[in-house]
């Protein structure tokens, strides 16, 4: 396949940045999207140009590092698929593909397609943990967890913190991410002691980072590679409202 790429190039955070066109030829439909970019970068290196900077790590859909806006869609056109799991067979010979970084005021561009997503880490630091007694590991089954709760927690835990939800949201909100984290720990017995303070603190941090609010449009769920459902945002709203109104919640 021969593909034309229009890629956002930006030297550093202070650079203006612009879209630049490149051609890549003889791309196999079995290549992943990132392998196709590797081909481009080899080409650029050979000609002495600066290779395109993009985030990636595991390349198997679990680490959350890959983060490309492909033709205006976070992680590209395939549902439930991270950029690294997207294959070139979903494109056609001769296609022009636009590639841009996640856009959000809370995600400053570092270089080209790489943005700084530390804001998500700071949200987790604000309350994404449980207090567990130290010492030897507890015996298995000392705390029983209902199947329903375990499944719900696991569904939330599937979030890979990629930030696609923010990139796709017209309000620039990280509510789906936040809802997944709140639901993950808040559904388990081990997460109950901090349930209120976790929801309150993480929400405070979410807003302090400059993310917008959720208007229940659902663009985030359409692009989320982990299939986090919209109702986890409602769970977040519920837990924040009850956390703020608990006696002694402060």
């Amino acid at each position: 396949m021969n593909i034309t790429l229009r890629i956002w190039r930006q030297q550093n955070h202070d650079d203006q940045g612009r879209m630049v066109s490149y051609g890549v030829d003889d791309i196999s439909p079995d290549m992943s999207f990132l392998e196709m970019l590797d081909v481009l970068n080899e080409q650029l290196t050979l000609t002495g140009d600066d290779p395109v900077a993009f985030d990636h790590d595991c390349r198997e859909g679990i680490c959350g590092m890959c983060s490309l806006m492909i033709n205006g869609l976070a992680h590209g056109p395939e549902a439930l698929t991270a950029t690294c799991q997207l294959h070139m067979r979903h494109f056609a010979d001769g296609d022009v593909i636009d590639i841009e970084p996640w856009r959000s005021n809370a995600f400053p561009v570092i270089k080209d397609l790489i943005v700084d997503r530390s804001a998500l880490d700071r949200i987790v630091q604000a309350g994404g943990y449980i207090s567990a007694p130290t010492g030897s590991a507890p015996d298995a089954n000392t705390t029983s967890v209902a199947r329903k709760d375990a499944d719900r927690a696991f569904d939330g835990a599937a979030c890979i913190s990629c930030g696609a939800c923010v990139a796709a949201c017209p309000n620039g909100s990280a509510s789906l991410f936040l809802g997944a984290k709140i639901t993950h720990l808040g559904s388990l017995p081990q997460g109950q002691p901090e349930r209120d303070s976790r929801a309150v603190s993480m929400t405070a941090q979410h807003d302090a980072e400059g993310f917008g609010g959720c208007t229940q449009i659902g663009e985030c769920t359409a692009v989320c590679p982990a299939g986090i459902p919209l109702d986890m945002i409602s769970q977040l709203n519920h837990d924040v409202l009850s956390g703020l109104t608990q006696p002694g919640g402060q």
Binding site: P193, E194, S197, V200, A204, D207, G213, L244, G249, Q250
Partner: peptide, 23 residues
């Protein structure tokens, strides 16, 4: 047992988008 929130975060959450949406 419940773990308390710090006053600063509690106040910020009171002014959060979540609360504004509830209003």
């Amino acid at each position: 047992m419940t773990v308390k929130t710090t006053a600063g975060r509690y106040g910020r959450a009171l002014r959060s988008s979540v609360v504004l949406h509830a209003v």
